[in-house]
Computed example of a mutant assay.
Amino acid sequence: MPSRRTFLRQCGLALAASSVLSSVPSWLSSADGFESLRGGIGTFTQRGGTIGWLATDDGLAVVDTQSPNSAPDCWNGLSDRSQGPLSLVINTHHHGDHVGGNGVFAQYTDRFVAHANVPDLMRASADEGAANDQTYPTETFEETWSESLGDETISLHYRGPAHTGGDAIVVFENANIVHVGDLVFNRAYPFIDVDGGADSRGWIESLETIHDTLDDDTILIHGHGNPEFGVTGGREDLLVMRDFLSALNEYVTQQRQAGASLDEMKQTETLKGFEAFDFDWALSLADCIEAVHQEQTAG
């Protein structure tokens, strides 16, 4: 199973490469990486986890920051969309492809909001000697957080360990848009960060809970996505992610009961019904199997 650093490097390279393919995915169809959704909210895709943004006359809010290389391009595009100040940055979790550009945005705001577990998780996952070089959240929350900007109300929610031990769900309440960060890898094999507090069964429960709080008009922003399916969608995408994680857990459980070794388990190429997850991507089914096996055999 790849380390966090290996995954983030592979993910960044994969996303960077996708922008020069002869057939550019629909979710990268905007030449500058920006796509508008509704209510002054949109996405920015370039290298790393999907950035969400809110542009109002009163100011800007940004969800996740990608990398030091792509964050300046995001900021330049956002500054054209609102003359107001950068009011705050929200980090959905601690991974470098979601917080790596924090330092760029710190030139324009001193407000960075994340779940209470994120600062320690950032420190624990930093390269040796680099912990002091990161830009950390300045405000944290335990269960919920809310603030208004312009005509929009932004609320943050924590449902427990899932993709990591500090995943924030970002709700733009009036626009009915939800940024779920890496709780959804849309039709792509996910990174289950066991060392970072992940809990795949808790992840399943979180996806079900989120689904039940939304409606068919809700737009979801996903942390990553298969180019064929994109990084935005509806609440049904939550159940696809849930069903994959459920099938993954069932597969590992059954294989363990049958006496299969981890190496034998990892030989399977796809899970039935989830063939779309198998595309040219930084992670494999074998990585997911190893993570869940580690969860099930811990202790």
Rank of each mutant, 00 (worst) to 15 (best):
T50D: 01
A188R: 04
V118F: 02
A114T: 04
P72I: 10
A188C: 06
H98E: 12
A131W: 09
D110W: 07
W75N: 03
G39Y: 07
V178I: 02
P161K: 12
V62Y: 06
E295Y: 09
M1Q: 10
T109D: 00
S206Y: 01
Q255S: 13
L283G: 03
S18K: 11
V231P: 00
V171E: 12
T268A: 06
F172I: 00
A298H: 15
S26T: 13
V24D: 06
W281S: 07
R187S: 02
G299Y: 13
A168L: 07
A61E: 05
A61N: 01
A124C: 09
S87E: 11
A291Y: 04
E295A: 10
V170P: 02
E208V: 09
D73S: 14
E295N: 10
D73N: 12
F34A: 03
H224V: 11
L156A: 09
G202C: 06
V99E: 00
G84Q: 08
T6K: 14
T209V: 08
D182K: 05
H211C: 05
T65S: 14
C11T: 15
L214N: 01
I192E: 03
D167Y: 07
E295W: 09
V63F: 14
N117D: 13
I204P: 02
A276M: 09
S19M: 11
D64R: 11
N249W: 14
G181C: 07
F112R: 01
M265Y: 02
G48F: 13
D73Y: 15
Q134D: 08
G12V: 15
Y136F: 12
A168Y: 05
S155L: 06
S30Y: 07
T268L: 08
